[in-house]
Amino acid sequence: MSTITVLAKIVAKEENRAFVKEELLKLVTGSRTEAGCINYNCLQDNEDANTFIMYENWKDAEALTLHAETPHYVGFKKAVQESLAELSVHKMTTIS
């Protein structure tokens, strides 16, 4: 099975930036403990502090599926749903 890389772009509404950042950091802590997690990093844009990129690598598609069912992931999505201006998630496989 192939490693799955996830790149997620999360843009917080200006007034919710601190809250979204706090929730993202909680998500990172929980996600890094998962058996199938290779790495789970949160980056904040240097020019637009409302923009965050999640860079994740998972052992396989099953590990990513299990991640989406964890209480910390489900809780994160519920907590921030009204606080985001944008969310896009790209699941990718290395080809070279």
Rank of each mutant, 00 (worst) to 15 (best):
V28H: 04
N16P: 00
T70Y: 01
T94P: 02
K91Y: 07
S88D: 12
T3G: 07
M92I: 02
D48W: 00
K21I: 01
M1N: 11
Y40W: 10
I95E: 07
T29E: 15
L25V: 02
P71N: 09
C37H: 05
T5P: 00
I53Y: 09
W58A: 10
S2G: 06
A49P: 04
E86I: 00
L84A: 06
I10R: 03
L84Q: 01
L25H: 08
V80Y: 03
K91V: 12
K21N: 09
T33G: 15
I95V: 15
K21C: 14
L84D: 05
A79K: 11
F76T: 01
R17T: 15
G75T: 04
K78Y: 01
T51F: 00
I4S: 05
W58Q: 07
Y55E: 10
D60A: 05
V20N: 06
E34M: 03
N50Q: 10
D45P: 06
E47H: 13
E47I: 01
S31I: 05
F52L: 07
M92V: 08
E34V: 09
E86D: 15
M1Q: 05
V80R: 01
A68F: 02
I95N: 08
L27T: 08
E22F: 03
S88C: 05
E69R: 14
N39I: 01
M92Q: 01
N57P: 00
V6K: 08
C42M: 12
V20Q: 02
E34W: 02
V28A: 15
H72K: 01
L64G: 09
L64W: 06
A35T: 10
L24K: 08
F52S: 07
K77Q: 13
N39V: 09
E69D: 06
A79Y: 04
T3A: 13
A61F: 02
V11Y: 00
E23L: 04
R32G: 07
E15R: 11
E62R: 09
K78N: 14
S31L: 07
D48F: 00
A63T: 10
Q44D: 08
K13I: 11
A18K: 08
L84W: 00
E86F: 15
T94A: 15
F19H: 13
T93S: 08
D60C: 07
A61R: 12
G75Q: 03
V80M: 03
I38S: 10
I53Q: 03
L27K: 05
K91G: 10
L24V: 05
L25M: 15
F19S: 13
N41C: 10
K91D: 11
F52M: 06
E82V: 05
L24M: 06
L7C: 12
I95T: 13
M1F: 04
C42S: 12
F76G: 06
A18I: 04
T3V: 15
T29W: 01
E34H: 04
G36N: 09
N16M: 13
G36Y: 09
A61V: 06
E56P: 01
E62I: 07
T33R: 15
I53M: 12
